[in-house]
Amino acid sequence: MAATSPATTSADSLPEARRDLAPLLVAPVLMVAALPLVGSLPTWVTLTVAGLAMGMMIFVIASGLTLVFGLMDVLNFGHGAFIAVGAYLAMTMLVPLAGWVQADSLWLNLAALALAVAAAGIGTGVLGFAFERVIVMPVYGEHLKQILVTMGGLIVAEQAIHAVWGGDQKAMPLPQALRGAVVFGDVAVEKFRLLAVAVGLLVFAGMQLVLNRTKIGLLIRAGVENGEMVEALGYRIRRLFVGVFVAGSALAGLGGTLWALYRETLTAAIGGEVMVLVFIVIIIGGLGSVGGCFLGALVVALAANYVGYLAPKIALVSNILIMAAILMWRPQGLYLVARR
């Protein structure tokens, strides 16, 4: 093709791209501000690690939901069903592996957990596929109906759990090697919390890798912003919808497993109970933003732990206060992605 040489325009000047770093500072500022208030360094470290672990678990649960909202414009109030079903599937998987769970070998413990997580992820992924096809697909674009039918889906799932596993509270004991704490000087950090932090970081890194380094990731990011244009470029976004919904459901299953292990008990309501936190996190993060969701989860969890220690009476409202403060600063969340 012959290249011609049109006149260069003078309209090329524009500001250099600046990375929006302010949201990255919220969690560190919160941590530093909490140190003098807590007063004791060991206590502060314990609270901080507990907050980070809790934040990572909430992130794992919420990351799929924020993508589902951003990409599919679907308000899925039934996300809690995947958390609960994932936890129950993992518990069921751990029963025949009781020998591995109670063994003194870290590797056997981790192998048992890996199998439990795989069962939870695969089971909730399949459930997510059915949920999207049967419950969500008929109500695309209709928010009120989405809220009603997905809430209905959550209720059905909880009742199904009662029917299959019974209505009583179940125990979800930690594997032997993950019980107790690691002691660094005066600081004691629970082993499972370290594992939760590691898993959360792995999930975050994996999601960043997929979203930023693969064409599928590009399509997801583009679809969150303008699904119609993605279709006009020739891509079948409905298939992407299903894939993201399944992946989000599987992540909820993984998160539900971690959450149940963290509490060491579970009931059918475990998903519904954590959903308030999950919604707060995705609103704080900015609907559709995985990075925002990660930061939002850390901030909410850290604040919950610090406030729970410093002023237990206001612990229940601390998350709402944090959300209000962040939305006053950035009304559309820490990172704006989905523009609807």
């Binding site: 590009l218 990011r221 583009a222 969150v224 912003e225 303008n226 119609e228 244009m229 006009a232 992605v337």
Partner: peptide, 10 residues
């Protein structure tokens, strides 16, 4: 399209 349909985040 008239609104250009640019993916601003990309």
């Amino acid at each position: 399209p008239e609104a250009m349909g640019i993916f601003s985040d990309l």
